[in-house]
Amino acid sequence: MKTRSWRLMALVFVAGLTIALRAGAQGQTAGPAQGSAPAAPTGNVDNGKKLFTSYGCYECHGREAQGSSATGPRLAPRPIAFAAFSKYLRQPTGLMPPYTSKVVSDADLADIYAFLRSRPQPPALDSIPLLK
């Protein structure tokens, strides 16, 4: 068998997502930015974009961090608070692999976070005839 069932993969992902939501991570439905959280460190958007690809974040979350109902939640353009973001990457509770500081530095995280925040807002739903 070449691949595992996508349904199983999706189920396992959802298990992780549920826990992630409890931990404060943002799910497929974007919410407002968490204003009470500490401010995110300044990051380099261009480097963050490179890292988002080279570190494989895009694989599950999409190249625009738009998310997938099957593999990984939407991360942009309004990511969860940086502290929760960092905590989840270091010790994920779902299917996502862990990214320790040995392989992704705090500076890298800040750059990736800056990239996520730089993503443009999606067009308004009502402005897209195909989705009416």
């Binding site: 439905t29 190249r63 625009e64 738009q66 998310g67 999606p122 739903l125």
Partner: peptide
Amino acid sequence: RADATYGWDASPVST
């Protein structure tokens, strides 16, 4: 429908 708007104009094309 709302989820579909994210990455709407992206290239490569969103699913």
